[in-house]
Computed example of a mutant assay.
Amino acid sequence: MPQFLETPSGRRIAYHQTPGIGPGIVFLGGLKSDMTGTKAVHLEAWAKAHGRAFLRFDYSGHGESSGAFDEGCIGDWAQDAADVLDALTEGPQVLIGSSMGGWVSLLLSKRRAERICGLVTIAAAPDFTEDGFWAGFSDAQKSELMAQGRVEIPSEYEDSPYVITRRLIEDGRDQLVLRDPLPLPFPVRMLQGTDDASVETAVALRLLDHAQGDDIRLTLVKHANHSFSDPDCLKLIETAALKVLARAEV
């Protein structure tokens, strides 16, 4: 059973926390995913085996946390992550961010810079509300979104469509990280599959080029998809985390 954190924002965030040595690891999941996903659960077991502190949680409107998904936005979910980091962890932390969680991890790296000592991203999707959703909408979809406050788009992961709200798009513009300087003054390992149908390789290359830091590396994995959850990919995440931890602890 999960535990729950009541945040200053009035949201009830579900989480699982494993005690252990630091730096701890905080896993940040993707859009409409939850903390029971393959990567989150696998990494928790891996952290336990290494005696490493680990935390996984559900953003508001996701999984077992309070709220409705359709009412949320990037700013809300980044605040959830900041509240979890502030209330439940101590000392330096390594963030592992998957898809949208990659974007959230970059926001935390700017807003809680003193708490972050390393970063692993998996198919990171920074600025996707603007560069993915909005840029890909037809004129008719944009008009519908602005007039009705929402538009539906097909989901490749669920039978029901995604509901994209005007609030999600407009708030996303306040959270963009690829338009302004992005200092990452700690070890960063980025992982990206070449067969990712949700996040193109060009996004990973753009992030690599844009981020500022002396220890940033990108690994492209031929034929890996967006889930990045097969045994080989999970092993690559473990390896990236170990390398970041080793450098962060020097």
Rank of each mutant, 00 (worst) to 15 (best):
M35P: 00
A246N: 14
R166E: 08
D180Y: 14
L207T: 02
Q141E: 07
G67W: 05
P126T: 12
E152C: 04
G101T: 04
V203T: 07
Q141F: 04
M35S: 00
I164D: 13
I164K: 12
L184W: 08
G30T: 04
D131L: 03
Q175V: 06
G22N: 05
T38V: 10
I169L: 01
A202Y: 09
V26A: 05
T194N: 04
P185T: 05
F128P: 06
G51D: 12
R167Y: 11
I25N: 06
V177T: 10
D174P: 00
P181A: 14
L5V: 13
P8Y: 03
P181N: 15
L95Q: 00
Q192W: 03
Y15H: 12
L236E: 06
Y59F: 13
Q192I: 02
V104W: 01
G20H: 03
A147C: 02
G97F: 01
G75T: 08
C233I: 03
G132N: 02
D34V: 06
V203M: 05
S60I: 10
P19R: 05
H42E: 12
T219R: 08
L107V: 03
G22I: 09
T219N: 13
H226V: 10
D83I: 04
K142S: 01
E64L: 09
S160M: 14
L218S: 10
F69R: 11
T36Y: 01
Q141N: 08
L242H: 09
E71S: 00
V250D: 15
G213V: 08
D76W: 11
R150I: 09
E156F: 09
H223N: 15
A248G: 14
P23Y: 07
W134K: 06
K48G: 03
V41M: 12
D58W: 12
L208W: 05
S65I: 09
G75Q: 06
A49S: 11
R247V: 13
W134C: 01
V250H: 15
I216M: 11
F54N: 07
D34T: 08
P183T: 09
G30L: 07
L178E: 09
L55E: 11
A140W: 11
T219F: 08
D76V: 07
A140T: 10
H62T: 07
A49R: 05
L95I: 00
P8G: 03
L178P: 09
A53S: 13
E158I: 15
D58S: 14
C117N: 02
F133Y: 02
D70H: 01
S105Y: 06
E114R: 15
S65F: 15
P161G: 13
I74P: 03
L145Y: 07
G63S: 06
A140R: 13
